[in-house]
């Protein structure tokens, strides 16, 4: 008479199974939490622009205010121009933007704000001086503002926000003329 022995399958202990599942669930929760924290809310055309801080360059403040939130400008038309000193196409529109600002600055209900995208301080101040820019300007070294504004391609890009804080238009690339800038602003009036 021959005895047949069937190999017994060793199962993973219950405590080990629970530990593995708890570890995996915790890991997923951590990754989800991290991704949620890392992603900024993004602006969309026709929707209110998520709020962000503006810390202006010295000498380029808004009416003497060095720090403010975008929401502080509610009730005004806001033109946000993203530029950089290393960006050649930005140089094409810089004189037109400054000239257009001259047409609106006394009205008080239209605000131009320059946002210097990932730049060096020397480069930024050199650019502002070179083109005689006088409207408020703030750095965006960590690209927080440009990611909230949902930067589409590169620099320059210009965003038009209406009096209710809603994003109306995005201009990708440089403006070709003052007339184009005026038409851009007029679309939010």
């Amino acid at each position: 008479m021959t005895e047949t022995t069937t190999p017994t399958k060793k199962s993973v202990p219950l405590w080990a199974q629970i530990t593995i599942w708890v570890f995996l669930a915790g890991l997923l929760a951590l990754v989800g939490f991290g991704l949620n924290n890392a992603s900024n809310p993004m602006a969309e055309i026709g929707k209110p622009v998520p709020d962000f801080d503006l810390v202006y360059f010295e000498g380029y403040e808004y009416n003497g205010t060095a720090e403010m939130k975008l929401s502080d400008l509610r009730g005004k038309i806001v033109v946000i121009n993203i530029w950089a000193s290393w960006c050649k196409p930005c140089e094409q529109e810089a004189p037109e933007l400054e000239e257009a600002w001259g047409l609106y600055k006394d009205r008080g209900d239209v605000v131009f704000i320059g946002v210097d995208y990932v730049d060096t301080p020397e480069g930024a101040f050199g650019y502002l001086k070179k083109f005689g820019i006088t409207f408020p300007n703030a750095p965006d070294l960590q690209s927080t503002i440009s990611s909230i504004l949902n930067r589409q391609m590169g620099v320059p890009e210009t965003y038009l926000i209406d009096r209710e804080g809603i994003l109306r238009q995005i201009k990708i690339g440089p403006f070709a003329s003052i007339a184009e800038i005026q038409a851009f602003v007029a679309s939010a009036e």
């Binding site: 290393w86 050649k88 990932v118 060096t120």
Partner: peptide
């Protein structure tokens, strides 16, 4: 390079990187 991702600053050919190297 903070702008052109995945490019070390020493070999990055852009104007932005040249400025950072000067910095």
């Amino acid at each position: 390079c903070p702008v052109c991702e995945n490019t070390p600053l020493d070999v990055c050919p852009t104007e932005a990187c040249r400025q950072w190297r000067e910095l």
